[in-house]
């Protein structure tokens, strides 16, 4: 009975790492340099085992973050990208020279984009594929260990659940409510941006891309809006009940952590205690 529950395919994968995490750990141990693709969803760029940049089709990329910051002109960013494409270009020097960007800001944007992309890509079920190649141009300024990315992913998911524990809010279109059943509402700047730009069709990730904000920041804001009843919440949850039943003992069977008392041992224990007294 019990062994059948343990072999249930619905229970086992919850504890196992997704294939992409295993592949990333292996690449770190082998100190490999190149690109680790997760299907066609995105890729991790590696330099001697460390992650230097992450792309993800579903999250807001570096380009979008930089361009919508409002302080970097298209021309300045274009010069950086041109230097990336050139054989002997120096994109980092170019970025440091741009008055609206600077090296520190570029580093910051790169880190935010990489963590943002990694948090959802690490859960990908796609088959990982490694391709050796030269390190990414951001390698000198951005180095993250795979373990840090995995920890950060767990932390971020906990943060989301602490805000509003229903992950359907992440994928559903953001629909502001028509009537606010409160006298006073306090919003963060980002929450206001989301409410003002929601068109009833776009999801949190779509709005993030449109506004040039990090996807995680928007997911967090959307969950907070759901908790505050400012956007339509998804309907009642349809939750599978099987995992909870799988661990319960069969009816009539005594619980496993209770065993009948051994009278012999009890008698000997009492004798020993009496001797002590």
């Amino acid at each position: 009975m019990r062994s059948a529950a343990a072999a249930d395919p619905g229970v086992a994968p919850a504890h196992a790492d997704p294939p992409i995490v295993t592949a990333l750990r292996r690449a770190e141990a082998d100190e490999r340099t190149g690109v680790l693709h997760a299907g066609d969803e995105g890729a991790f760029f590696l330099d001697r085992g460390a992650v230097t940049y992450v792309t993800n089709r579903a999250t807001t990329g570096l380009d979008r973050l930089v361009m919508s910051s409002g302080t970097v002109s298209a021309e300045e960013w274009g010069r950086v990208l041109l230097a990336v494409a050139e054989r002997d270009g120096a994109p980092l020097r170019e970025a440091g020279r741009a008055p609206g960007l600077g090296r520190a800001r570029l580093e910051m944007f790169a880190l935010l984009a990489a963590f943002d992309a990694a948090s959802s890509l690490l859960g990908s079920a796609a088959e990982p594929r490694f391709e050796a190649g030269p390190p990414h141009w951001l390698a000198p300024v951005c180095r993250i260990t795979p373990a840090t990315l995995v920890l950060e992913r767990t932390r971020r998911r906990d943060r989301l659940d602490a805000e509003w524990p229903d992950d359907r809010a992440d994928t559903a279109p953001v629909v502001p409510v028509r009537r606010v059943r409160r006298q006073r509402v306090i919003l963060t700047g980002l929450q206001a941006e989301l409410l003002l730009n929601a068109d009833g069709h776009r999801t949190a990730a779509g709005l993030a891309l449109d506004l040039g904000r990090t996807t995680f920041g928007c997911l967090l804001a959307v969950r907070a809006l759901a908790a505050a009843r400012l956007i339509e919440r998804p309907g009642p949850a349809v939750r599978p009940v099987a995992p909870a039943l799988a661990t319960a003992p069969a009816p009539g069977e005594p619980p496993a952590f209770w065993t009948p008392p051994d009278h012999d041992v009890l008698v000997r224990l009492r004798a020993a205690l009496e001797e002590l007294a």
Binding site: G96, R97, A98, P99, L101, G102, R103, A104, R105
Partner: peptide, 8 residues
Amino acid sequence: EMAGGEGA
């Protein structure tokens, strides 16, 4: 200085 980049 950090936000403004070099020379800002």
